[in-house]
Nucleic acid binder design. Structure first.
Lengths: 125, 125
DNA sequence: CGGTATCCAAAAAGATACTG
DNA sequence: CAGTATCTTTTTGGATACCG
């Protein structure tokens, strides 16, 4: 019998999800995307560096290239005499902002709870 | 006991959000929490290991302790004849399932888009 | 079954210097 | 301003082996 009561997701899609999670599951990717919250306006390289905080140029550059390759961000050279580059959220990246924002808002709302849990964990042990 | 002791020094309330993101922004935390999706039932250690896939006992153990300290998971020793432990989602962890699920669903829905973007990125250059 | 301890390899990140 | 190159340090992960 080929009919399962459970869902039968294609294996091809399964590792694709894994691949997508790989894009986001590192120290910086989520933070970089959170830097666009809530206005989602394009951000220039050094401003991004300032907004994220504690990230080196090298890592930021790497991450931006990764996010650009994934189609979440778009790199734009600013025209005119002003030497500059900005990174804008693509339409695809924009669809990700909802889940990201949800995560960010959760962090805002429950940061105290997490801290309290960590504090009481020591006391419990 | 201290194989890889990772301590988060208490910081300001402003940095609490950052601390929360630190809990989630690594290779495994999101995947482990995704393993509970969609039924959110408690999962035993080795079943969790199988569901996550590709994770070693050591890392899984580390991550579970971290998530337990953060109050997202609860470790329960199973009573009775069977030697076993299960990890259950706490009420706090349950509130996180919504953002996590949103992220997971996004990955499901847009995995193809990301792949296409990565493919066209080479061609574009 | 559900972990820990130890050792080791690999990957990520940081500092610094340099470039167009 | 916006990076790249190079080197070093730090962090992470995997492979056992072993324990309650």
């Amino acid at each position: 019998m080929t009919t399962d009561a459970e869902d039968e997701p294609p294996e091809d899609e399964l590792w694709a999800i894994d691949m997508v999670l790989d894009q986001l599951a590192d120290k910086w990717a989520l933070r970089i995307l959170c830097a666009y919250y809530p206005d989602m306006a394009p951000i220039r390289f050094n401003e991004l560096k300032r907004r994220v905080g504690g990230i080196s140029q090298k890592i930021l550059s790497q991450q931006l290239r990764k996010l650009e390759r994934s189609g979440l961000l778009e790199r734009r050279v600013l025209p005119g005499r002003l030497l500059g580059v900005e990174y804008a959220i693509t339409p695809l990246g924009h669809t990700l902002q909802e889940p990201i924002s949800a995560l960010y808002k959760w962090a805002e709302a429950h940061a105290g709870d997490v801290r309290a849990a960590q504090a009481s964990f020591q006391a419990d042990a």
